[in-house]
């Protein structure tokens, strides 16, 4: 169930809560002279799945660490679940669940022991711990592995346990920091399912990802962060519409690239693409493809490969940042035609 993509739904009918579950105003974080986060404003609505998108080192994790009370902002402020993250950190902690980037779990403990420890640290009444732990193990499908040491778990199992741990106290706001990085496609889809289910039960979710596909599949709204700043924000549909025309990609022999470029430019705006191919935002839509081919043929350009892509978040990303995400091609979820990274980015910490 729930394979349909959650579209923007009417949230105004949700209870009388006056403040949004996540509000950040002018968040700044410096590490020494490095400005990891450079003025982020953010508002996540109640009941929403919000996707936070950006390459490694763009500042995603630093924003999450500030919102989850792990790190104090250098400047600016943030409220989560109605409380200030600095002055009322413990009130925030009680209401949020966080699944960490690398699912850091003590390998010497069993799944059950970790759930119990988590329950104790969150002040769950003793009488409820057992039932709650069992319920969560059932939910993430780890009943059989509950008494095994976590060190023997697979990557997917660790992520699922991590998710269960973050849910022990029924948080109203859930933070998922790159929840599927490194997972195989099957585990990834299972995790998406679970996130949707939680969301339908009323949990507000903020998830960071470097996979555009993931944001497209899950998020009601998306923010793209680059160099510590939010460069674009909106629903995936709106963002994609803003890019407009579908992208026509062609490959030609290097010697003919310049000629081909000139031809393509007549049909719309040239787009950022991976090396070795040319792209154009085809203003005439799919119907214009034959015209392009004819024009290229007239110019003597031999087309080696051709494809037409509807606008994707990838295009939005490329348009707002000037390059394509590394993760886009490695998700295994994007269609085979997904462009390779246009420009390698050095990893910034």
């Amino acid at each position: 169930m729930n394979t349909k993509q959650p579209g923007p739904t009417d949230r105004s009918s949700d209870g009388g809560s006056s403040t949004a579950p996540i509000i950040a105003k002018g968040l700044v974080r410096h590490f020494g002279s490095v400005k990891a986060v450079d003025g982020v404003d953010l508002e996540v609505h109640e009941g929403e799945i919000f996707g936070f998108l950006g390459p490694n080192g763009a500042g995603k994790s630093t924003v999450i660490r500030m919102l989850t009370t792990l790190l104090k902002p250098t400047a600016g402020s943030a409220q989560v679940a109605g409380f200030d993250v600095v002055t009322h950190a413990n009130d925030v902690r009680r209401r949020i669940g966080v699944a960490l980037q690398d699912a850091a779990i003590d390998p010497l403990m069993t799944g059950n022991e970790l759930l119990h420890l988590q329950a104790v640290l969150y002040g769950l009444p003793v009488s409820q711990v057992r039932a709650r732990a069992d319920e969560l193990l059932e939910r993430v499908g780890l009943v059989g592995a509950a008494d095994r040491r976590v060190g023997t778990y697979s990557g997917g199992m660790r992520r699922r346990l991590d998710l269960a741990l973050s849910l022990i106290h029924q948080p109203t706001v859930l933070f998922l920091d790159e929840p599927t990085t490194g997972l195989d496609p099957m585990s990834r889809i299972a995790l998406w399912e679970e996130v949707r289910r939680l969301n339908q039960e009323g949990t507000t979710v903020l998830l960071t990802t470097q996979y555009l596909e993931e944001a497209d599949q899950l998020a009601d709204r998306v923010a793209i962060i680059d160099h510590g700043k939010i460069v674009k924000e909106g629903t995936p549909t709106a963002l994609k519409a803003s890019v407009g025309a579908p992208t026509l990609l062609i490959s030609v022999a290097a010697a003919q690239a310049l000629t081909a470029r000139d031809v393509l430019a007549k049909f719309g705006e040239l787009r950022t693409t991976s090396e070795g191919s040319l792209g154009v935002g085809l203003e005439g839509g799919a119907g214009a493809v034959t015209d392009v081919i004819r024009a290229l043929d007239d110019a003597g350009v031999k087309v080696q490969h051709l494809e037409l892509n509807e606008p994707s978040l990838d295009d939005v990303f490329a348009e707002s940042t000037g390059y394509r995400l590394e993760g886009a091609a490695s998700t295994g979820m994007t269609d085979a035609a997904g462009p390779a990274p246009a420009r390698k980015r050095g990893r910034r910490k």
């Binding site: 413990n90 009680r94 104790v120 969150y122 106290h169 029924q170 949990t203």
Partner: peptide, 23 residues
Amino acid sequence: MTSTVTILAGQATGGTLLRSARG
């Protein structure tokens, strides 16, 4: 397929000093 909700969301009180320390 939603499981039974046994406690109200957001009602966790936070662990007490001794109980958390013991854990």
